[in-house]
Nucleic acid binder design. Structure first.
Lengths: 243, 243
DNA sequence: ATTTATAAACATGTCCTACAGGTATGGTGA
DNA sequence: TCACCATACCTGTAGGACATGTTTATAAAT
């Protein structure tokens, strides 16, 4: 993988009046410049404060900013370390966006459908045997815990996460992970909307079918099943008044 | 390439003790509880400090955390206000992920392709006349500024952004916007990899074709053109050694 | 009476000092 | 060699102080 070392900082609050923002950029550049990898430690607050000519308070606030977007990890008594990105930040953004009425649940579902139709196809192509087993297991767990909605939801989410992992693309994994936050809030509604046992069994059947297609390495079949699964969910939520 | 992507549950900052994290949650709950809308003001730092029984430092760090993920806006002398989510946070995450070698450019491209095939189809269905004009204009601008790579890139990015906007789904807009950060770094490489004018013209032809399909309200044609466009770019970057 | 100018009240930005408590490191003793 | 502990280092939180920016209310001017 060729590296383009234009460590040009991403418009990270481009123009800033404040020392904190400047410090955030300095630290950002520092990580880039020293090519720090995940887990490596940054200088201590005091050391940075001296080096950058600001007070420790400023460095602390800058650290908090970077930690909030998961660029670094903080811990009492330990120096800050470079962190691996995770989905929590995007999850927060989405969650907030929905709550603030900037986005509808259906819109989120459309995006999920788009993405997961791809992840499932990739999973069918790139899954390891262990992936296939994991995925199938979650589908079976859904069936086994049929009476306990809470647990079915847990398996459902784990199922989709496992598929994303099997796609071998961390960006997809990131996105799928982020959507779970919204899923957790809407899933019970969709489950309740499917009052009849037959409808609930159908939901699980979709998962079994998807797992089977992945195991058989049939991307198109997997994709089709995933699409139907989402269409079914979309309808259920619509029926429950979730737009 | 080593990966750590810790995709795990999330929501409101793990149960990490620490007054700052608790305060972040409190403020988060406050926004939810009071159903504050974008633009509305939060209590002042001092007021919150008193109310939550913590020092002002703690509230400030909590504010910084929330501002870093764009849940609130901060400004000197002004009270903090609820903010609308934007793509900069995810952009940072992606950028960081690529720089830390957690993600390859090709993986990002795959995600982009997946998403933009959908946005372009939606755009073809839901575009307004103004959207169609905007999109076509950017394509024409690319052609007009053919000799100036920097400007072509600008039009290219604006083109894709306009399509996302025409999809009328803010989540897609958010995602597409976030990818631009990576695009800005890889685009010049792809352009350089297409040494012959004919190859460069072909790139622009794809955009013209996409714009035309959107104008004609032909989602499938638009989708196909977009797919070809991405396949072409993927190949160009591969040829340049970008994996 | 409406508008403008100005002053006061309020809010954030930054610094300093202080100390409690967590972490890691190295040395000592078994 | 290994376990244990003292110690130096580091982060977490508090309170006070003051500069600077913003809003509001009052007063002056048209």
């Amino acid at each position: 993988m060729v590296r383009f070392l234009t460590s040009n900082a991403v418009a990270l609050e481009a123009r800033s009046d404040g020392l904190v923002d400047q410090t955030v950029r300095s630290i950002h550049d520092l990580i880039r410049g020293e090519k720090l990898q995940v887990g490596q430690a940054l200088p201590s607050e005091t050391a940075l404060a001296v080096r950058l000519g600001v007070s420790r308070v400023v460095v602390r606030e800058a650290f908090r900013s970077l930690a909030a977007v998961k660029l670094i990890d903080l811990g009492t008594g330990r120096r800050a370390r470079v962190a691996a990105p995770d989905s929590s930040v995007l999850a927060l953004t989405l969650d907030h966006s929905v709550h603030i009425d900037q986005t509808s649940v259906q819109q989120v579902l459309d995006v999920r459908r788009t993405i997961e139709m791809r992840t499932v196809a990739l999973a069918a192509l790139r899954r390891t045997d262990a992936d296939a087993v994991r995925i199938a297991t979650f589908a079976r767990n859904m069936s086994d815990d049929f009476l306990n909605g809470e647990r079915v939801m847990g398996h459902d989410i784990a199922f989709h996460e496992a598929i994303a992992a099997a796609s071998k693309n961390p960006v997809f994994e990131l996105l799928v992970g982020a959507f779970h936050v919204v899923t957790r809030q809407t899933w019970p509604i969709g489950w309740a909307a499917r009052a009849r046992d037959a409808d609930r069994r159908a939901v699980i059947a979709f998962h079994v079918e998807i797992a089977s297609a992945i195991a058989a390495r049939e991307p198109q079949r997997a994709e089709r099943a995933m699409a139907e699964h989402f269409d079914n969910s979309t309808k259920a939520l619509l029926a429950a008044g979730i737009t």
